[in-house]
C-alpha cells in the first residue's frame, strides 16, 4: 500500500546572524544552508500493518509523513501510496487517506464538531447511510456524544483529539497517518485513543504509520518499528526482535521485608546497576546473561516478598540504538 524508494528531502533554510547588524545585513546578503531531512529512505508498508516511526526531534519522521500524505514535495526518490504519487494529490488518492496531527487542529475552530463532520461528509461525498453508521460507531466508541454540539475551540485537548480522530476516519480511509496522536493527553485519554486505533484496525484493516514520542503508543500499537536518525532509517523490523537484539539488560524488581540480612546497598556491583532502592524495595538493571545469578542472590540474601523480572524500558533500548546510529 505504501512504497518508498530512496526518498530524499532537502530544505533550504535562511540563516541570520543575531542582532541588528545581522538583520540589516540579511536584507542585502542572505546566507542559505541546506538541511537534509531525509537522506534516502526506503520503506514498504502493507495493508493492515501499523508501523511506528521513532526518532529524535528533527530526525525526519514528520517530513516522511508529510511527503506520503501529499503535503510536501520530495527532493528526490520515489513514493507511492495506493498506487498514486502522493504529491500529485489526485482526488481518488485524497479520498482514501487520512492524516491526524496531534499538534495541529484540522477541524474548523468556530464550528461545533457536528457541523464539521457534515461538511466533511460533503467534501468526501460519503453516502449518508455509511456516514451515519460510522459516525454513530465512532461517537459511541470514543464517548463524545455530549460534546458534539460544542464549538471545537471550547473542547478540552483530549476531547478535541477524539473529534480529530472521528473527522479523519469518517470516510474510512485505507491509509492512515498519525503524527503524535496522543501528545499532551492525560493517561486515560491516551489509552482511549490507543484502544480505539486498535479497534479501528480490526474492522477496517488500513495501513497505518504512527509517529510518537510516547513509547507506550509504539509498544501497544505497532508490531513493526522504523527508527529514523538524522534522515536515515537505522532500524526497520519487528518490535519483538528489537528487544531480543538490542535490549542487553533486564530489570529485576524485588519488594522486601525490612529486616533482611543484606541491605540493598550491598548488592554486588559486578552483577548490575541499582536503579532505585529503599529499605523495602530494590530495582536493579542486570545484563541478560547474569539475570539468573542476580535473581538467585537477591532471593537468597534478601527477605523477598515479591520479585519480578522485566524487559528494559523500550525507550532506553531505542535511545541506545539511536546513540549507536549517530556515532
Amino acid at each position: 500500500m505504501i512504497k518508498v524508494k530512496n526518498l530524499k528531502k532537502t530544505y533550504r533554510v535562511h540563516k541570520k546572524n543575531p542582532g541588528m547588524i545581522g538583520s540589516v545585513r540579511s536584507l542585502f546578503f542572505r546566507k542559505w544552508t541546506e538541511k537534509h531531512a531525509l537522506k534516502g529512505v526506503s520503506l514498504q508498508v502493507d495493508e493492515g500493518e501499523i508501523v511506528g516511526l521513532v526518532g529524535a526531534n528533527g530526525a525526519g519522521k514528520t517530513t516522511l509523513v508529510k511527503i506520503l500524505a501529499g503535503i510536501i514535495h520530495p527532493s528526490d526518490g520515489e513514493a507511492e501510496v495506493l498506487g498514486f504519487t502522493p504529491f500529485s494529490r489526485h482526488t481518488d488518492f485524497q479520498k482514501q487517506i487520512a492524516l491526524i496531527m496531534g499538534q495541529k487542529a484540522q477541524l474548523w475552530w468556530d464550528l461545533p464538531a457536528s457541523d464539521s463532520f457534515l461538511l466533511l461528509r460533503e467534501i468526501y461525498q460519503t453516502p449518508k447511510k455509511d456516514f451515519q453508521e460510522r459516525l454513530d460507531y465512532l461517537i459511541e466508541t470514543l464517548a463524545v456524544r455530549d460534546q458534539m454540539n460544542i464549538q471545537i475551540r471550547r473542547l478540552s485537548l483530549g476531547e478535541r483529539m477524539k473529534m480529530e480522530l472521528i473527522a479523519a476516519l469518517l470516510h474510512a480511509p485505507k491509509v492512515v497517518f498519525l503524527d503524535e496522536p496522543t501528545i499532551g493527553l492525560d493517561l486515560m485519554a491516551q489509552k482511549a485513543i490507543r484502544d480505539f486505533i486498535l479497534e479501528y484496525r480490526k474492522i477496517h484493516n488500513p495501513a497505518m504509520i504512527i509517529t510518537s514520542h510516547y513509547m507506550e503508543d509504539i509498544e501497544r500499537l505497532c508490531e513493526r518499528i522504523v527508527i529514523i536518525s538524522e534522515g536515515d532509517i537505522i532500524y526497520d523490523g519487528s518490535f519483538r526482535k528489537i528487544i531480543m537484539e538490542y535490549a542487553t539488560h533486564k530489570v529485576i524488581t524485588a519488594r522486601l521485608d525490612k529486616n533482611g540480612a543484606m541491605k540493598p546497598s550491598e548488592f554486588p556491583p559486578s552483577l548490575g546497576e541499582i536503579i532505585a532502592s529503599d529499605d523495602d524495595f530494590i530495582r536493579a538493571k542486570v545484563e541478560r546473561n547474569k539475570v539468573p545469578e542476580a535473581a538467585s542472590l537477591i532471593l537468597q540474601k534478601l527477605p523477598v516478598i515479591d520479585l519480578s523480572i522485566e524487559e528494559e524500558e523500550i525507550s532506553n533500548v531505542i535511545e541506545s540504538i539511536l546513540r549507536k546510529g549517530m556515532e
Binding site: 508529510k66 501529499g70 503535503i71 482526488t91 485524497q94 487520512a98 492524516l99 495541529k104 484540522q106 467534501i123
Partner: peptide, 12 residues
C-alpha cells in the same frame, strides 16, 4: 502556520 496542509489533504 502550516494550516494549508489541511486543504492539501482534503479532496477539494
Amino acid at each position: 502556520e502550516g494550516t494549508l496542509s489541511r486543504y492539501l489533504i482534503y479532496p477539494v
